[in-house]
Design a protein around this nucleic acid. Structure first.
Length: 104
DNA sequence: TACATGACAAGGC
DNA sequence: CGCCTTGCCATGT
């Protein structure tokens, strides 16, 4: 799998996350590992940083349900607009976490 | 080759 | 909640 295809696989998966739900970086990495063999949360983060612009990036959060300070304002607005379950400053992972098998 | 850097994660305190 | 240490893996010096 070439790097470009890998990037595409990440973005494709992110695109399938339903509104109001989220996946953690680690979950994206795990789901992709079953398909492409290699992944890591850091790698997914790096890809989102470079190529996340055209995808629903606010549906990918860290394990705590949060995002870095630079993105939190935009993300909160979109979470509210989609009715994403929130808790404190971030997403309620217990209620909002999504996995490809279940939500389709 | 070696080291530093990230939209990260898990475990200890 | 927080902070710190390890482990992780592609990218860039």
């Amino acid at each position: 799998m070439t790097p470009d295809e890998y990037v595409e696989a990440v973005l494709e998966l992110v695109d399938r996350i339903p509104p109001g739900r989220v996946m953690s970086y680690g979950a994206v990495a795990d789901a992709l590992t079953e398909r492409s063999g290699r992944a890591s949360a850091r790698l997914v983060g790096a890809i989102m940083a470079r190529h996340g612009g055209g995808a629903p990036w606010h549906r990918v959060v860290n394990a705590a349900g949060a995002l870095p300070p630079r993105l939190i304002a935009q993300a909160r607005a979109r979470w509210l607009a989609e009715g994403t379950p929130l808790r404190g400053t971030g997403v309620d992972m217990r209620a909002a976490a999504w996995w490809p098998e279940q939500g389709m």
